[in-house]
């Protein structure tokens, strides 16, 4: 079952918050160079899955390995874009400074960022179309701009594997396009990206793999094979009637 080019292996992973078990017996593997969306209803444990894999949330049982190594050994190769709402944007700092934080791992604990680090951070901002806002207070950025700053911070890490938690939530169309262009570019460079995603309609357009999650994995595979009506209904439960008629054109079903 173990495929040689899987760079993420998750085996029997479970996690819980104080009373509720959020994830039970999660098993999946991700191949290098893929763009996977993690979809599922609210409270399905999508963010928790990412956080647990990245050791930001305690693991109850199970094992996660990256590039055949433990997280501890692989963490320099992993970039993480948390949800925008996870930080206090009133914090007194500017966009460039936040992006520079992505380099702190390389800079080291006791050393301060040099000019070349600032330059690198600025280039990442430029890539996200944010160079004009480098010295802008982060509190004065719009939601979409804040998201771009977060993405730029991940880009400077030059990781091989990225985890992004709802990067497209609450951003305008142009930011969505800019972010997806960057994800495509990362994919072209052979990097692997896993994205928690909330919008089922754009899954076939934006991603090549999909992972259906609702406390456990309901289906996982290529969008062509896996993104089916039956998997959506199985994962979300109830009636996802929007899929039935009019929207059929955006869903590539095999059934």
């Amino acid at each position: 079952m173990i495929v040689s080019n899987s760079i993420i292996q998750v085996e029997h992973l479970s996690a819980a918050y104080q009373k509720n078990t959020v994830l039970t017996d999660i098993n999946f593997e991700v191949k290098a160079g893929t763009l996977t969306s993690i979809v599922g209803p609210n409270g399905a444990g999508k963010s928790t899955l990412i956080k647990t894999m990245l050791a930001l949330h305690p693991t109850l049982t199970g094992k996660v390995s990256f590039f055949g190594k433990s997280f501890e050994k692989a963490k320099k190769q992993i970039g993480y874009v948390p949800q925008r709402g996870s930080v206090d944007w009133d914090f007194p700092t500017n966009a460039l400074d936040v992006v520079t934080m992505g380099l702190y791992g390389k800079i080291g604990f006791f050393r301060i960022p040099m000019k070349k680090d600032k330059q690198k951070a600025f280039e990442a901002l430029e890539k996200m179309g944010m160079s004009a806002y480098a010295n802008r207070q982060i509190s004065q950025l719009s939601g979409g701009q804040q998201q771009r700053v977060f993405l730029a911070r991940a880009l400077v890490q030059e990781a091989d594997l990225y985890f992004m938690d709802e990067p497209l939530a609450g951003v305008d169309a142009s930011t969505e396009k800019a972010i997806m262009a960057i994800l495509e570019e990362l994919k072209k460079q052979g990097k692997t990206v896993m994205v928690v995603h909330h919008d089922l309609q754009t899954v076939p357009e934006y991603f090549d793999h999909v992972l259906f999650l609702n406390h456990t994995v309901y289906a996982h595979g290529t969008v062509e094979e896996t993104f089916t009506d039956s998997n959506i209904i199985k994962t979300y439960g109830g009636n996802m009637s929007w899929l039935r008629e009019g929207d059929k054109n955006v869903v590539h079903t095999t059934s």
């Binding site: 930001l56 963490k75 992993i78 970039g79 948390p82 206090d88 934080m101 911070r153």
Partner: peptide
């Protein structure tokens, strides 16, 4: 600064 602004990210680093 990193710890106060985004502890989760710091942990990721």
């Amino acid at each position: 600064k990193l710890y106060l602004f985004d502890a989760g990210f710091a942990q990721g680093l």
